[in-house]
Computed example of a mutant assay.
Amino acid sequence: MTATPGGGIWGRTEQQDFRSRVRGCLLGGAIGDALGAGVEFDSLDAIRAAHGPQGVTDYVPAYGRRGAVTDDTQMTLFTVDGLIRAHVRRDTGAWHPPTDVHAAYLRWAATQRDWGPDERRTEDGWLARQEWLYSQRAPGRACLTGLADSRMGTLDAPKNPDSKGCGTVMRSAPFGLLVGWEPQLVFQLAAECAAQTHGHPTGYLAAGAFAVIVHAVARGESLDAAVQRAMAHLAAHPGHEETTNALKHALGAVRQGLPTAERVESLGEGWTAEEALAMGVYCALVAEDVRHGLLLAVNHGGDSDSTGSVCGNLLGVMHGETALPPNWVAELEGRATILELADDFAMEMTQGPALHSPATPAGSPGWLTRYPRT
């Protein structure tokens, strides 16, 4: 057994459950992203006209293939990469996770402008060398402009101070997987990293709320209780009203009857952070199973890939990887990379000292090649 970051003990069963939840969170989010990718800019009427009265019921081609993911999944993976690098760098005495996540987002930004990985840049680590990530998949303007130079936005001096797009929420589930952290620290880190691209309070507070929801569910709380916990955290922050009200509307919609696409649309379109969060949360709350929840989350006239991604993150962390429809997992773009990164994150969180601590001479040099301390 190994010690947890929070001071507890990881037994084998706990490690297996955690790995399953991490895999489920990342794969589920990517599946929801891919289900919505082909209809992201279509109205509900157009979706039904093209795919039948039930709308999309499976992957539809996007970006030249079935199961293609978008910038939502790309940035989520780089969030994970940054969090692993932060924990590895802690050995050096440097401990400022927002800086490491920002560096990871800059590596993502390079994938949006470069033809492919530069093998000479060993300090970039292994994720930035995955060629399939070097593809523009409708990235948000605020994400691109916020990362166009090396200055890191902060809560005191954010990038794009008027932007509250959903580009903050769709990438923030990994902060919630820091299960050894206290919830208020998870909230704070997600908000700080959101301010690197989106400076409106709703943009970064919605990211913090989403991270706390994932965190509570990963620790075994019900989704309803997790949402209540997030609203309690939100209440302490100026400018929380839009996000709090959006979550209240999501909870209210659950009590209004059977879930429908029209009820999902009553919560918004998902282009803004609070709407994407509310829509994804609602669909996860009313989901009969993973398949039902994800299809509900993408069949609407709005930002279908982002709402699908949020819902998929939640359902995946709730139920673990084995609850995901295997046919969707099999066709998912980048599946091998996502699984490898998920397992690396789970291993870092549960067994990190054995991999790279200066006090552990038998650590893995290969780990520091994958996740350099530089």
Score class of each variant (00 low, 15 high):
residue 41 F to Q: 14
residue 374 T to M: 02
residue 43 S to Y: 08
residue 322 T to F: 02
residue 219 R to P: 01
residue 52 G to H: 09
residue 87 H to W: 12
residue 182 E to M: 12
residue 347 M to H: 15
residue 24 G to I: 00
residue 212 V to I: 09
residue 4 T to F: 03
residue 207 A to P: 01
residue 164 K to N: 13
residue 152 M to Y: 07
residue 92 T to G: 05
residue 300 H to G: 15
residue 264 V to C: 04
residue 118 D to R: 11
residue 262 E to V: 12
residue 360 T to Q: 15
residue 92 T to W: 09
residue 215 H to E: 07
residue 95 W to H: 14
residue 248 K to F: 09
residue 343 D to W: 08
residue 234 L to E: 06
residue 257 G to S: 05
residue 4 T to L: 03
residue 140 G to P: 02
residue 290 V to G: 07
residue 117 P to W: 08
residue 355 L to E: 12
residue 124 D to I: 10
residue 85 R to V: 14
residue 290 V to C: 12
residue 159 K to H: 02
residue 266 S to M: 10
residue 275 E to S: 05
residue 10 W to K: 06
residue 221 E to A: 00
residue 128 A to E: 07
residue 64 G to K: 03
residue 142 A to T: 11
residue 254 V to F: 05
residue 16 Q to V: 10
residue 94 A to W: 10
residue 139 P to C: 11
residue 311 C to S: 05
residue 1 M to E: 08
residue 367 W to I: 05
residue 94 A to E: 13
residue 274 E to W: 00
residue 218 A to Y: 03
residue 25 C to G: 02
residue 183 P to T: 05
residue 55 G to R: 03
residue 155 L to I: 01
residue 139 P to F: 07
residue 205 L to V: 01
residue 237 H to P: 01
residue 93 G to Y: 12
residue 195 A to E: 05
residue 96 H to R: 08
residue 363 G to T: 10
residue 357 S to E: 15
residue 108 W to G: 11
residue 88 V to L: 06
residue 75 M to T: 07
residue 243 T to E: 04
residue 235 A to H: 15
residue 336 A to Y: 09
residue 90 R to Q: 09
residue 183 P to Y: 06
residue 63 Y to G: 09
residue 286 V to T: 14
residue 187 F to L: 10
residue 22 V to R: 06
residue 16 Q to N: 10
residue 133 L to W: 14
residue 281 V to K: 07
residue 62 A to G: 04
residue 40 E to Q: 08
residue 232 A to T: 12
residue 165 G to L: 07
residue 203 G to E: 04
residue 135 S to D: 13
residue 160 N to E: 12
residue 149 D to E: 05
residue 161 P to W: 01
residue 112 Q to I: 09
residue 274 E to I: 01
residue 308 G to S: 14
residue 278 A to I: 03
residue 19 R to T: 03
residue 333 E to V: 10
residue 122 T to Q: 11
residue 283 C to F: 08
residue 359 A to P: 12
residue 261 A to M: 09
residue 170 M to N: 05
residue 278 A to P: 01
residue 34 A to H: 07
residue 57 T to A: 13
residue 145 T to W: 07
residue 266 S to Q: 14
residue 356 H to R: 15
residue 235 A to E: 15
residue 306 S to C: 14
residue 94 A to H: 12
residue 349 M to S: 11
residue 359 A to F: 12
residue 318 M to H: 15
residue 224 D to N: 12
residue 148 A to S: 08
residue 365 P to E: 03
residue 241 E to S: 08
residue 230 A to L: 09
residue 143 C to M: 04
residue 220 G to F: 00
residue 32 G to H: 08
residue 372 P to D: 06
residue 245 N to T: 13
residue 65 R to M: 06
residue 257 G to T: 10
residue 319 H to T: 04
residue 91 D to M: 10
residue 104 A to P: 01
residue 257 G to C: 05
residue 199 G to F: 00
residue 3 A to D: 14
residue 291 R to M: 11
residue 199 G to T: 00
residue 281 V to H: 04
residue 319 H to M: 09
residue 38 G to W: 03
residue 177 L to M: 06
residue 141 R to N: 09
residue 24 G to Q: 02
residue 126 W to P: 05
residue 349 M to W: 13
residue 145 T to Y: 10
residue 343 D to T: 11
residue 160 N to H: 04
residue 335 R to L: 12
residue 304 S to R: 10
residue 105 Y to P: 02
residue 24 G to A: 01
residue 268 G to Y: 11
residue 98 P to E: 02
residue 63 Y to C: 03
